[in-house]
Simulated assay, not measured.
Amino acid sequence: MTDPLVDPVAGSDELAFEGALRPTSLAEFVGQPKVRGQLEVLLRAATIQERTPDHILLAGPPGLGKTTLAMIIGAETGRPIRFSSGPAIQHAGDLAAVLSALVPGEVLFVDEIHRMARSAEEMLYLAMEDFKIDIMVGKGAGAASIPLELAPFTLVGATTRSGMLPAPLRDRFGFTAHLEHYAAADLERVLSRSARLMDVALEPAALGELARRSRGTPRIANRLLRRVRDWLLVHEGSSDLDGVRAALELYDVDEAGLDRIDRAVLEAIAHRFGGGPVGLSTLAATVGEEADTIEAVVEPFLVREGLIGRTPRGRIATPAGLRHAGVVTQDATLDGV
């Protein structure tokens, strides 16, 4: 029976599709040159010294390749890898069950590690540093602590919010990799590889258009490529720039990479609230989305693109955001003079 705490990241068609496109080595991994170079030195040094690699924390926005890099770490070192996630580890006993089942040298990947329960985090401190844990047996006056030795392992943690990790946990990672959003040129290389694996022939200009609208994120780029492939199959269109643009228009992805909810948030600030400021809860009620979704999914991209800003009084639309929303500003008028 599959253990839900360590079940691999698989199951849905979408995740299976993404898994088929994952690179399997650092040499195949596109982008993040600094992180790739750092990991290569770390892993090769551990192999030369015949020791378990240091614990590794992978931090960065969703979709940039943290899970892929964890799989590559296992492949590059020739070690088995076990998968878990922070939300699945809600008690110290959950973590103890996972750790005690590890074999020597195994890689343990914990996704969303910042969402682990505090009691499990405290147990993890000792496990990472000394490869042992203390298990409490019994209750009350008769309770006793039994030390349990663990097989040496490498913990690879992934987080989109490294600031939420307690300092004692962050300090126990030997290396922290900060993944950045991809440049358009790197995304073109990602899309070129994926298109080849999917047997989709796209012109360079079409790949460039897809890369430009993919928000600097390989996961989004591959999903848009899948939608373009579907559109071309149905319409039997040529694999050119016009076909890509038609497919992306159908799926509500505009020239800047904004989707329906992105535009709804931007247009609400620009039109309904006169450019802002407007509070997050009011904005969420206006567009019919959860405040957490707007804050975690929509805002980071709009802020990074310079379309909205955060102020102590609320969210505002920048001049660039107002122009994108179709509001003519004095700056826009001057630009056209």
Rank of each mutant, 00 (worst) to 15 (best):
T2W: 07
D3C: 08
V9Q: 05
S12A: 05
D13Q: 07
A16H: 04
F17Q: 03
G19N: 15
L21K: 09
P23M: 02
R36G: 08
G37M: 03
L39K: 00
L42M: 04
T52N: 06
D54N: 11
H55F: 13
L58D: 10
P61A: 04
T68D: 11
L69M: 07
A70C: 11
I73D: 04
A75Y: 05
E76Y: 07
E76K: 02
T77M: 15
R79P: 06
I81W: 00
F83W: 14
G86K: 03
P87V: 11
A92Y: 00
G93Q: 15
L95T: 13
L99Q: 05
G105K: 03
L108S: 01
D111A: 12
I113H: 01
I113T: 02
H114Y: 14
R118F: 10
E121M: 11
E122T: 08
M123I: 06
A127V: 08
M128C: 00
D134W: 06
I135V: 15
M136T: 10
M136E: 14
V137Y: 09
K139G: 04
K139I: 02
K139H: 15
G140A: 08
A141T: 14
S145H: 05
P147C: 06
L148G: 00
L148M: 12
T159L: 08
T160G: 09
M164C: 04
M164S: 10
M164T: 10
L165H: 08
P168F: 02
F175P: 02
T176F: 10
T176S: 10
T176Q: 12
L179V: 12
E180P: 01
Y182H: 03
A183M: 02
D186S: 15
L187D: 12
R189S: 12
L191Y: 12
R193Y: 00
R196W: 10
L197A: 15
D199F: 06
V200T: 15
V200E: 10
A201R: 07
A206H: 04
L207K: 01
G208T: 11
A211H: 14
R212P: 07
S214V: 01
G216N: 11
R219D: 11
A221E: 11
R223P: 03
R226Q: 15
V228E: 02
V228L: 04
D230R: 14
V234L: 15
S238R: 14
D242E: 14
V244N: 06
Y251T: 05
E255Q: 12
G257F: 08
R260M: 06
A270H: 01
V278C: 03
L283C: 08
A284T: 06
A284P: 13
V287D: 01
A291R: 00
D292S: 14
E295C: 05
V298A: 00
V303L: 08
V303S: 11
P312V: 00
R313T: 04
A320V: 01
A325W: 02
V327Q: 07
V328I: 11
V328Y: 01
T329Y: 07
Q330D: 13
A332M: 12
A332N: 02
D335P: 00
G336F: 06
